[in-house]
Simulated assay, not measured.
Amino acid sequence: MNASNASPVVMVMAAGASTRYGSAKQLARLPNGCTLVRHAAVTAIETGLPVQIVIGAHGELVRAELIGLELAIVDATEWWRGVGRSIAQGVDALVARVGKPTSVLLTLADLPQVTSKDLLRLAEMHRQSPDRLLVSGFGDNRGPPCLFPADCLPALQKLDSDDGARGVVKANAERVVAVPLAAAGFDIDRPSDLLKMPRQG
């Protein structure tokens, strides 16, 4: 299998409408005053890897939070069709910009406990085993951040539902490796979740 050995591009998903949150979740402020979306973007940039962020709902407000950051911004114009479609549009833009397949380290803006070290751990595991599809394991669950080898990009480009990339992971079950990452198990879904945020360090 011809998987790319190149460093992955970190793709931060921040396109959702935040219906359960009740307002623009991307703009929710963490205890340190930073918005969720800027925190996720800075965390990705701290890896030293190329970074792309996908925005959609609340686009202009979210874009304003990213001023001054060195990353590519992609507008998911069909974000309302679900996160799968936003991922597909993000990968479309990445392929168009990069011009050749590359691996994608997919993460979400609402995972404030995930650190740059966590993302780099996945990137290092990819360099060691470039054919593997890496998913984060937390308890009995699996999910983002996930690292998709280059040959998975065509499947990601076909996504068109609210089920995210689960179908791509399932279709490649024989080469999926779950990487223990407790931080991935804490996401911000409702305003009250900010009060439950575990202390880091």
Rank of each mutant, 00 (worst) to 15 (best):
G167I: 01
A150W: 07
F138T: 04
L122R: 05
F138V: 06
L120E: 02
G139W: 07
G143K: 04
E124L: 13
K158Q: 14
R127V: 00
A155C: 00
S136D: 11
R142L: 12
R142W: 12
A173D: 14
D162K: 12
G167Q: 01
D151A: 00
F148R: 04
A150D: 13
K158N: 06
L133E: 13
G139Q: 09
C152I: 04
E124D: 15
M125A: 14
A165T: 03
G137T: 13
L122T: 03
N172C: 06
L133H: 10
P145L: 04
Q157L: 02
Q128E: 15
G167P: 02
A173V: 12
S161V: 07
A155I: 00
P149G: 05
A150H: 11
E174M: 06
Q128G: 10
P144E: 07
K158Y: 02
G139L: 07
G167F: 01
L147D: 01
D151W: 07
A123E: 08
L159C: 03
L147N: 04
V135K: 06
L133D: 08
S136L: 10
L120Q: 09
R132A: 15
Q128W: 05
N172R: 07
K158L: 11
L133S: 10
P154V: 00
Q157V: 00
A150Y: 09
V168K: 01
F138H: 15
R127H: 12
A165W: 02
C146I: 08
L120N: 08
R132G: 09
A173N: 12
M125R: 15
S161G: 08
P144Q: 07
D140F: 10
G137A: 14
S129G: 12
A155H: 04
A123V: 01
C146H: 11
F148Q: 05
G164P: 01
H126R: 04
K170L: 07
D151P: 02
D140V: 14
A155G: 00
G164W: 02
D163I: 09
E124W: 11
P130V: 06
R132T: 15
L153D: 00
D162F: 05
C146M: 15
D163M: 10
N141V: 12
V135M: 13
V169M: 06
R121L: 13
N172G: 05
R175G: 08
K158M: 10
D140S: 15
P145C: 06
D131W: 06
P154M: 03
R127Q: 13
P149N: 08
D160R: 11
A150S: 15
K158G: 02
A171F: 00
P130W: 07
P154Y: 03
R127F: 06
C152Y: 07
D162P: 02
L159I: 01
D160Q: 05
R132F: 08
S161I: 05
A171M: 00
P154I: 00
L156E: 04
K170P: 01
D131P: 02
R121D: 15
